[in-house]
Design a protein around this nucleic acid. Sequence first.
DNA 1: GCTAGGAATGTAACCGGTTACAGCTGTGAC
DNA 2: GTCACAGCTGTAACCGGTTACATTCCTAGC
Lengths: 347, 347
Amino acid sequence: MVTAREIAQLCGVSVATVSRVFNRPATVSTTTREHVERVARELDFSPNESARALSRQRSAMVGLVWDTDHRRPGWRHPFLQDLLLGLKSALSSHGYHLLMLATSDDARDRNPGVSLADPIGYVSMTRRHHLAGLVLIDSGTDAEAFTAFAQSGLPCVALDVALAGPRATYVTSDNAAGAAEAIRHLATLGHDRIATITGPRGNAPAAARTEGYLRGLAEAGLPVREDFVVTGDFYRESGFVGMRRLLARKDPPTAVFAASDEMAVGALLAARAAGLRVPADLAVVGFDDIEVASLVDPALTTVAQDKPGFGTAAAGALLAMIDNSGAPEPVRLPTKLVVRDSCGATR
Amino acid sequence: MVTAREIAQLCGVSVATVSRVFNRPATVSTTTREHVERVARELDFSPNESARALSRQRSAMVGLVWDTDHRRPGWRHPFLQDLLLGLKSALSSHGYHLLMLATSDDARDRNPGVSLADPIGYVSMTRRHHLAGLVLIDSGTDAEAFTAFAQSGLPCVALDVALAGPRATYVTSDNAAGAAEAIRHLATLGHDRIATITGPRGNAPAAARTEGYLRGLAEAGLPVREDFVVTGDFYRESGFVGMRRLLARKDPPTAVFAASDEMAVGALLAARAAGLRVPADLAVVGFDDIEVASLVDPALTTVAQDKPGFGTAAAGALLAMIDNSGAPEPVRLPTKLVVRDSCGATR
DNA sequence: GCTAGGAATGTAACCGGTTACAGCTGTGAC
DNA sequence: GTCACAGCTGTAACCGGTTACATTCCTAGC
């Protein structure tokens, strides 16, 4: 492991100069700089990040807070892989890395007597590692705790959770617009009894999708029927149950908008169980465009989210806050209606 | 941010003693230790990891090498989320964290003139951050590069790639046994013309699954037909194409074992396109038990891998190497045949 | 009573960078 | 010729821990 001191000796300069070459190249004369750069390259020098973080009081790492919700064990993020890839690639192009923080259950196990202000140990982790920023992925449990960070002044970007603070912002899909588009699409196809299965109460994207549903109905000049709005929890099972309830209404819906693909799949299964053909007897539209969507039969029409865009946008916002300080506007990613077979438009 | 020095002053001891309390408690008298521990807890002291890593020459972080294969852009790890959760939780219970290293394309972009010995910048990352170990997830591209690490003496655990070295080992499913079980199951159901669609050449799990296929045939007393082995690449499309080719044989197979669920789904689609009913005319068995498997119609019988087990086993092996030095035996996780509808056993 | 030896603790030198400050040199203005 | 100032570089004090070694104190053995 070659150090800056060795480079300095070989070049006949001081360590300070070597350090400057890498941090403030403009303050070093061209000849010296090029000499140091050449020698450093030859010896494959790369600065020790621990030392750098120690003296700068800030590391080149961004924390990732993500955990399963222990209250809902089967839950998976619909597109974690794409998100991570986008995040990683955007961060790394600016020299940052992602540190996955162990939290929640993990930390609780190790450290039973945690403080209230930092119930899951994130804050302490953040300080210990001098993290440059934090990416917060909502798992349903920790959303309340997120605000503690947002207030702390550390650059924070949350995904799908509204977050405000001196250096906090968030990234989310334009859920309302996406849902409204789905409803308009169904209306265009001639449906006038359109129901919805919503996400869980208290979940921001779920609320926005419901709002979009209502807006879409209004735009299409359709009345709102309260008995056409049933609450789900994003899981498949709740889509199944919700659909069954909807089908039991008098004048049952001819179309349903599920606030997640998982629930849409559940609705599909419920329709099949009730002897209905999709899309002939019932049109179904989902939200997310998870991998399964194109695989079920009939293939699911759905509102696609910009999966890698989440990562890229989060990284962008975070880097902006790290450099400039000050919170950028929340990012609202556009969605895209992917028309497949379950809505009946493709026949 | 409270430091060890402040704790020391408050307790009337030296920093060295404070440090010892946390690192070698046995060498400190009980009274002193308890005093320091109490004060530290009250002030919410936690040691600065950068400083600690710097002086110890080793950080409490484990690097995660994972990347998409840029030659196969659509590829997703079949169960990255479970794996990460298992890994994270097992590592964190020993105080380690996961650092996602940006590699491959990312690094290449930033650093065009990389060395041959470290084509993708992992080694340099590892040194810079004083990583305690490395978890290597095969993306298909980098497997060759992995051996470089294995030789370096740094604790390394690879997933699904055979890796050997002074402190290197790997975790994989018992692919051969799983495949053999699938074949025996099909044979038990009366099939005697069982084909397979393999994974890509050069991929270790793929090879093991083919080996298991052959072993299964042998155990069932069935002959091997070379025209019943077609090569795929784990992607759905190749399952579709492979199945079409198999169905074109004279005496086409009545059952097919696909080395991945994705390919099994492709095979399902090909069978449907050819007007065959599954499982009546053709039995299909896959491998992995990805989420989609239970959703397709008919639901896919498949060889399930122990998804969180991968993470836990990898973490266990890594921690053992970090503590003891010396490479533990490779871990071969048992698989489990999940019988659903596509094999015809459930009618 | 004296000493060997172990236990507990302190001292200070690291680990490998960053950066405030000071010093040196050379140029142009007066 | 002197001086102000800009440009470049070196010195040394950090950052916050860890740990080899030295020191002190106490007890057991003779």
